[in-house]
Design a protein around this nucleic acid. Structure first.
Length: 839
DNA sequence: TACTCTAGCGCG
DNA sequence: AAAGCGCGCTAGAGTA
C-alpha cells in the first residue's frame, strides 16, 4: 500500500476552492483493473472520502453486478466549484497525478467514465461516439463509457451503461483467458478407449449432421468436450463402439447447446437416449430472452470469443473431417465453458424454472418429436382432392374477370400470365382496371387486397377470390406443406422450439403443429393410429384466469368460483349496460324459465343458465358470445377503441360508431374494476425496472419501458408488460401438466404428440383412455410442480378433454357412452366414472 | 441461382 | 416511430 497524494498540491487553481485537495484513495496497490472517474463531487469533498456520492454508489453497484473490481481513481482530484466539470487546463495539470496512479497500479484494463476521463487518459474527446469500443494503447486496454452521473440523470440509458460494463467485464475475461482447444480425432481403437476413460462428470456433447430432419439425413460426427480435450468421432461407428460409448455417457452430465436436436438424432438413428443435464442455449434464453441464442453470440457475450463459424458445407462434412475439426472443437469447448458461466448467472427463480421446467422439457420434447403425430392418410387424400376441386372451381368462376395477360411493372419487361395469387396483379386489376376505389393501403403504400378489404368491396369477383385464397392456402400450407415432412407416408414429427418466443411459450415448426386450422377438414387429419385414441386436453380460458389471479379481479374471481362463463358475463354486462336487445334477452329468458320476466331478471336468468342453454334457445347467442371473447382479450391487453371498431367490423360484421366503441371500452373496465389498477402496477414496475416478472419468476426484459418520453416503442413495451406475465405463466402451467402426464404413465400407454400453448395433444392406448383422461384433467387443475414453485392460486383452474380425431373429439362421458353402445360388455368403464365429470 | 423481405393468413 | 400480445409458413417480388 502506497500513499501518493499531496494535500498541498498547487498544480492548478482548484486547490483554492476545494475543501480537500488531492483526494486520491489512500491505499494504492497494483491492480489489473482501474476505473477512472471525473472529479470529486460535493459529498466526496465534504467527507474527504472518494466515491461515496450517489453516482459513486451507483457505479459500485453496477461493477459488483458484473464482478468487476479494481482501483478507482479520478482524472481530476480536487472538486471543481459550482458542480462544473474540470476544464482542459485542470485536466492537463492533474495528468501528473494520473501518471503517478498508473505507475503504481500498473493496470492492464482501464475503464474510462465520461469525457473527462477520456481526455485525461487518451487525449480524445467525444464519448458518445467512442463509448463501448475498447482502445488499446501502450499495452493497456482502455474502455470508454458514460459517466455514471450522466446515466443517473438519463435513466433510460441505464441499460446501455449496463451492457457497456458487461462488455468491459468480457474484455477482461477474454484477454485473460484466451480460448484453447485441444482436439483429438477418434479413429482407432486405442484412441477410442482412451476417450472412454476420460469421459467423466461434465462433458459437452454436440453432433454435426447433413440436415435438420433426422428422418432425412445422416450424422457426420459426434463430439465430446472435457476440460482438457475435445474428442471428435467421425460417423458411422460400429455398434460395439456405440454401445460402449452409451454405457459411459449414461454416467456423465451432458452439457449441450440446444441438445434436444442432438438427442433426437441419436434416438432416431441409433435408438439411444442421451439427455442433457445443462443446456447452454436454454439457460441463455432465460437470462436474456431478447438476444440471439446461438453459441457464437453467447460465447462472444460471456467469454469474449471471436467468431469461429464455418460454412454449412464444411459442417456437413463435404470437405472432409479435418476441415471441420477446429470449428467443432470450438463448439465443444465453448459449450462446456459456458455452462460454468451461465450457471452462475442464473438467478434463483430462473434457476428453478431451468431445473424444473426447461431441462425436463428437453427430455419430454425429444420424446414428443421422436414419437410424432399420426396422419389419417385416407382423409388426407380426400381433403387434397376436395381442395383441388375448390381451387379449380374458384379459378373457373374468376375467369371472366381475368385480363388476358398483364405486364410486369410500368415498362414492358415480359409477358407473364395473370396470377390470382399475386397481390400486386390482383390489386392492379381491382383498383386500376376495374377502377374500384382503394380501401386501405399496406405498410409500404401499396393498395391492400387483404380479406378485410375484399369483404368491403362490392364486386361479384371477391367471393370467388376469397374462396380461392382459402382453398389455395390450405392446400399449400397443410397438404403440399406437410408432404415433405411425412415419414412412412403417415407420421409427422413437428419440432418444438423451447426458446421460440420472448414470453416463454414454445413455437413449433417443420411443420408448425400450432397453426393447424380449426377447420375440421384439415384438423381431423391429425389422429391416432389403430389401437390408440387421440386426446386433447386444454386449460379453459387460462389466460383470463391467470390475468384474474394477477389483477386480483373480484368480478372475474366471483365468476370463476361460481362457474359463470366469463365471456358470457362480459356479454351480458355489455348488453345490460344500455338495456340493449330486449327482445332477445327477455325472449330467451322466458323460454328458459317458462315465464315472463323483466329485463334485469332476464339477464340474471341468462347469467345463471349459461351460454349453452341460451344457444339452444336461440343460435344468435353463439356469435354474440364469440364477440364477447374478443372484447375480453382485446381490452384486457390494452386494445384501444379504434382498433376494436375494426376488429368488430372484420370479424363480426358489427359496425360500431366511435361513441359506441368508446363506451364499450369504458364499460369493460368499469365492470372489471381491478383491471386498471393492475395495468398501472405492471406499467409502473416496467417503467422503474425495465422488466416485469411472471408468477414463477420468469423475467421479460423491456428496456424501452425505461424511456421517460411517451414514444411508440415505450407504449408497446408497456402493453407487453401486461401481456407477458399472463402468457408466460399460462404456458408454464400447461408444460407442468405435460411433464407430469409423462411422468405418471409409461410410454406404452400414453405418448404426447405436442402442446399448443394451453393444450396437450396425446395418443392413448384405447383400453386406458378413461383412466388417463380422468387423471390428466386432475393434473391440469393442479400440477404438482405448482407446489415446488410455492405457488398457490386463488382462481380455480379448469380443464377440458376431448377424445377422437382432432376437432372431432368428444367428452369422456360421450366417449364412454359410445363405447358402451358399441360393446355392451364393457360396462365397467362406465361404473368407474363419477356421475358428472368436471370438464 | 439463392437469398431476404412483405403481405397475407393460420393458430393460441 | 402509435396505440391487444405471442408465433410460423407460403407465394410473390425484389435484390445480389
Amino acid at each position: 500500500m502506497i500513499e501518493i497524494r499531496d494535500p498541498s498540491c498547487t498544480r492548478c487553481a482548484l486547490h483554492k476552492t476545494a475543501q480537500f485537495v488531492c483526494l486520491i484513495d489512500k491505499g494504492i496497490k497494483p491492480s489489473e483493473v482501474m476505473i477512472l472517474g471525473e472529479a470529486p463531487g460535493k459529498r466526496e469533498d465534504d467527507t474527504g472520502r472518494p466515491f461515496v456520492g450517489r453516482s459513486g454508489q451507483y457505479l459500485r453497484r453496477i461493477l459488483d453486478e458484473h464482478h468487476v473490481e479494481g482501483f478507482i481513481g479520478n482524472a481530476v482530484n480536487c472538486r471543481p466549484p459550482d458542480n462544473r466539470s474540470p476544464t482542459s487546463t485542470e485536466i492537463t495539470a492533474c495528468r501528473y497525478w494520473l501518471d503517478k496512479q498508473l505507475s503504481v497500479v500498473k493496470p492492464k484494463f482501464v475503464l474510462l467514465l465520461g469525457n473527462v476521463a477520456l481526455e485525461s487518459a487518451l487525449q480524445m474527446r467525444g464519448i458518445a461516439k467512442l463509448r463501448g469500443k475498447p482502445i488499446e494503447r501502450d499495452g493497456i486496454h482502455y474502455f470508454p463509457t458514460w459517466h455514471p452521473s450522466y446515466v443517473l440523470r438519463n435513466e433510460w440509458d441505464q441499460a446501455t451503461f449496463d451492457t457497456d460494463i458487461a462488455a468491459f467485464a468480457r474484455l477482461i475475461k477474454q484477454v485473460k483467458t484466451p480460448s484453447v482447444t485441444n482436439p483429438v480425432l477418434v479413429e482407432d481403437e486405442a484412441t477410442f478407449r482412451r476417450m472412454l476413460t476420460q469421459l467423466r462428470g461434465s462433458v459437452s456433447f454436440d453432433i454435426e449432421t447433413t440436415g435438420l430432419y433426422p428422418w432425412k439425413g445422416e450424422i457426420v460426427v459426434l463430439g465430446f468436450g472435457t476440460r482438457k480435450h475435445q474428442f471428435i468421432v467421425p460417423m458411422p461407428i460400429s455398434d460395439e463402439w456405440m454401445a460402449d460409448l452409451d454405457d459411459v455417457i449414461q454416467d456423465c452430465q451432458l452439457i449441450t447447446q440446444f441438445g434436444k436436436f442432438d438427442s433426437l438424432w441419436l434416438r432416431v438413428k441409433h435408438g439411444i437416449r442421451w439427455t442433457s443435464s445443462f443446456d447452454v442455449g436454454l439457460a441463455h434464453y432465460l437470462i436474456d430472452e431478447n438476444a440471439p441464442h446461438d453459441l457464437e453470440y453467447i460465447a462472444k457475450r460471456f467469454l469474449g470469443a471471436e467468431p469461429w463459424d464455418v460454412p454449412l458445407k464444411v459442417k456437413q462434412g463435404h470437405h472432409g473431417i479435418p476441415a471441420l475439426v477446429e470449428y467443432f472443437a470450438k463448439d465443444l469447448h465453448y459449450t462446456r465453458a459456458l455452462k460454468f458461466v451461465l450457471d452462475e448467472k442464473l438467478e434463483p427463480c430462473l434457476k428453478k424454472i431451468f431445473k424444473h421446467i426447461m431441462m425436463p422439457c428437453v427430455g419430454l420434447f425429444t420424446e414428443i418429436e421422436f414419437d410424432g403425430v399420426y396422419v389419417n392418410v385416407d382423409k388426407f387424400d380426400e381433403a387434397e382432392e376436395y381442395l383441388r376441386g375448390e381451387v379449380a372451381a374458384a379459378l373457373k368462376a374468376l375467369k371472366r374477370w381475368q385480363p388476358p395477360d398483364t405486364f410486369k411493372g410500368k415498362r414492358v419487361i415480359k409477358r407473364i400470365p395473370f396470377n390470382w395469387g399475386s397481390t400486386k396483379q390482383v390489386g392492379y386489376l381491382l383498383f386500376t382496371t376495374l377502377k374500384i376505389p382503394i380501401v386501405e393501403k399496406t405498410k409500404k403504400g401499396a393498395a391492400s387486397t387483404s380479406e378485410s378489404v375484399l369483404k368491403r368491396i362490392d364486386h361479384p369477383l371477391v367471393a370467388s377470390l376469397l374462396k380461392l385464397r382459402g382453398a389455395q392456402q390450405q392446400l399449400s400450407f397443410f397438404i403440399e406443406g406437410w408432404k415433405p415432412f411425412l415419414v412412412d407416408g403417415r407420421w409427422l414429427h413437428p419440432s418444438f422450439k423451447l426458446h421460440g418466443t420472448v414470453t416463454g411459450r414454445l413455437s413449433s415448426e417443420h411443420p408448425n403443429l400450432q397453426q393447424v386450422p380449426r377447420d375440421p377438414r384439415i384438423r381431423q387429419l391429425i389422429d391416432a393410429p389403430p389401437g390408440w385414441e387421440l386426446i386433447e386436453a386444454d386449460l379453459s380460458q387460462i389466460e383470463l384466469r391467470v390475468a384474474c389471479e394477477l389483477a386480483r379481479e373480484r368480478q372475474m374471481m366471483y365468476a370463476f368460483h361460481h362457474d359463470i362463463d366469463i365471456h358470457w358475463l362480459t356479454l351480458l354486462n355489455e348488453l345490460s349496460r344500455t338495456m340493449a336487445m330486449p327482445e332477445l334477452i327477455m325472449g330467451t329468458a322466458a323460454r328458459l324459465s317458462n315465464r315472463q320476466l323483466n329485463y334485469s331478471e332476464s339477464v340474471r336468468v341468462l347469467l345463471e343458465r349459461g351460454p349453452d342453454a341460451a344457444i339452444e334457445v336461440n343460435f344468435e347467442w353463439k356469435e354474440r358470445r364469440k364477440k364477447a371473447k374478443a372484447i375480453n382479450f382485446g381490452y384486457l391487453y390494452g386494445m384501444w377503441w379504434k382498433k376494436f371498431r375494426i376488429y368488430a367490423r372484420d370479424n363480426y360484421d358489427v359496425i360500431l360508431t366511435d361513441k359506441e366503441a368508446q363506451d364499450s371500452r369504458k364499460a369493460f373496465f368499469s365492470s372489471y374494476p381491478d383491471i386498471t389498477p393492475w395495468h398501472t402496477r405492471q406499467q409502473n414496475f416496467a417503467r422503474r425496472n425495465g422488466y416485469v416478472l411472471s408468477l414463477s419468476g420468469r423475467k421479460r426484459h423491456l428496456p424501452d419501458a425505461l424511456d421517460p418520453y411517451d414514444t411508440p416503442p415505450r407504449a408497446e413495451a408497456l402493453r407487453q408488460a401486461i401481456n407477458a406475465p399472463v402468457q408466460s405463466f399460462a404456458n408454464e402451467l400447461n408444460l407442468m401438466s405435460a411433464l407430469q402426464l409423462r411422468a405418471e404413465f409409461p410410454r406404452s400407454i400414453v405418448r404426447i404428440c405436442g402442446t399448443v400453448h394451453d393444450s396437450i395433444l396425446a395418443r392413448v392406448k384405447k383400453e386406458h383412455v378413461v383412466e388417463v383422461g380422468k387423471r390428466l384433467l386432475e393434473i391440469m387443475k393442479h400440477p404438482i410442480l405448482l407446489d415446488t414453485f410455492g405457488i398457490t392460486l386463488s382462481v380455480p383452474i379448469e380443464a377440458e378433454l376431448k377424445v377422437g380425431p382432432w376437432s372431432l373429439g368428444v367428452s369422456l362421458e360421450k366417449y364412454i357412452k359410445r363405447q358402451n353402445e358399441n360393446q355392451p360388455e364393457s360396462r365397467k368403464a362406465m361404473a368407474s366414472m363419477p356421475r358428472r365429470l368436471r370438464v
